[in-house]
C-alpha cells in the first residue's frame, strides 16, 4: 500500500495540513505538523500569480519568493522531509507554470526522486490533463484533482478519470481561506462524491477551527487546513513551529475523534 492509501486506511479520518514552501523555516514547520498529528502534508509551491488563493496564502507566496525560494529549494525541502519522515505522505500543491517550466517529464521525475506522493495543480483541469497528468502517473505520482460545488454530475466522471491519491473537495466556490461552507452542503457533496469513486474524499477551503474540522470529519475521509496554519507562520515567522504544532494537535484530536472506522 502506498503512503497516501495507508494514511487514509487508518481507523480514523485524516488531517491534511498545508504550509507554503520557503515561508519561514519550512523543514521545522513540516516537522511540527507531523509532531502535532497531521496525517498528510501539503507543501505549497509559491507562485507569483496565485489566482485561486486568498490573502493569507498570497502573502505567504510573496514572503517565500522575496526570500528567493527556487524550485530546486522546494525539492530539497521535500527530499529532506522524506528522509526524516519515511511514512508520512507529502503532496505538492501549486500552479501549472512552475510545474511545467522545464517540461512535465522533468517535474514528474523530480517528484519521484524526492519522494513526493501526489501533486495538486490548481489550474490544470481534466481537459488539459495532457500538460502534466500522463508523466505524473507514469512516475507513480498521484495527480490529485479538485472537485467543487460547480462540478455537476455530468462533469464529475471526467474529473475522476485519471485522478489518484484522493479527491480534494473544495467546499466553497471561492478562493482559499475566506468563507466557510454550510455543513449540510458539505455532507451532501461528500455523499455524492463517494457514490462516484472509491478514492478517499478530503474537504478543504475555509476550514479554520477544530469544531469545523470535526463536523467535516464525521462525513469525509480527510479535512484540509491551510490558511489558518499559514497565518501562524506569518505571525510567528521563524518561531512558528510551536504555534503550528499546538493548532495541528487540536485539529488532529478533533478530526481523529470525529469517527472511528
Amino acid at each position: 500500500m502506498n503512503r497516501l492509501a495507508a494514511a487514509f486506511a487508518k481507523p480514523h479520518p485524516a488531517l491534511v495540513c498545508f504550509v507554503t514552501a520557503g515561508d519561514g523555516d519550512t523543514a521545522a514547520n513540516l516537522d511540527a505538523l507531523v509532531a502535532g498529528g497531521a496525517d498528510v502534508i501539503e507543501l505549497g509551491m509559491p507562485f507569483t500569480d496565485p489566482m485561486a488563493d486568498g490573502p493569507a496564502i498570497q502573502e505567504a507566496n510573496i514572503r517565500s519568493l522575496a526570500k528567493g525560494t527556487t524550485t530546486a529549494d522546494i525539492f530539497a525541502i521535500a527530499t529532506g522531509f522524506r528522509a526524516r519522515h519515511p511514512d508520512v505522505p507529502l503532496v505538492l500543491m501549486g500552479y501549472a507554470n512552475p510545474m511545467v517550466r522545464r517540461g512535465p517529464q522533468w517535474f514528474a521525475d523530480q517528484c519521484n526522486a524526492a519522494g513526493v506522493d501526489g501533486v495538486i495543480c490548481v489550474d490544470i483541469p481534466p481537459e488539459e490533463d495532457d500538460a502534466l497528468g500522463p508523466q505524473l502517473r507514469a512516475a507513480g505520482v498521484a495527480p490529485i484533482r479538485l472537485a467543487t460545488p460547480t462540478t455537476d454530475a455530468k462533469r464529475l466522471p471526467a474529473v475522476l478519470q485519471g485522478s489518484g491519491g484522493f479527491v480534494y473537495y473544495v467546499s466553497v466556490a471561492g478562493i482559499t481561506g475566506l468563507q466557510q461552507a454550510a455543513q449540510a452542503s458539505i455532507d451532501e457533496a461528500v455523499a455524492r462524491l463517494k457514490s462516484a469513486t472509491d478514492l478517499p474524499i478530503a474537504v478543504g477551503f475555509g476550514v479554520r477551527t477544530p469544531d469545523q474540522a470535526s463536523a467535516i470529519a464525521r462525513v469525509a475521509d480527510g479535512v484540509v487546513v491551510g490558511s489558518a496554519l499559514v497565518e501562524l507562520v506569518a505571525k510567528h515567522g521563524e518561531d512558528a513551529p510551536l504555534a503550528l504544532r499546538t493548532l495541528t494537535a487540536a485539529l488532529a484530536d478533533a478530526v481523529h475523534a470525529a469517527r472511528k472506522d
Binding site: V122, D123, E127, E128, A131, L146, T151, R155
Partner: peptide, 22 residues
C-alpha cells in the same frame, strides 16, 4: 474544439470556473 491554437491556448483554469467556461 478544445480551444487550442496549435500547442497554445486551452482552458487552464481552476475547477470551480471550468463548468462556467464550458
Amino acid at each position: 474544439e478544445r480551444g487550442h491554437f496549435g500547442d497554445y491556448g486551452g482552458r487552464y483554469v481552476a475547477e470551480t470556473l471550468m463548468p462556467l467556461v464550458l
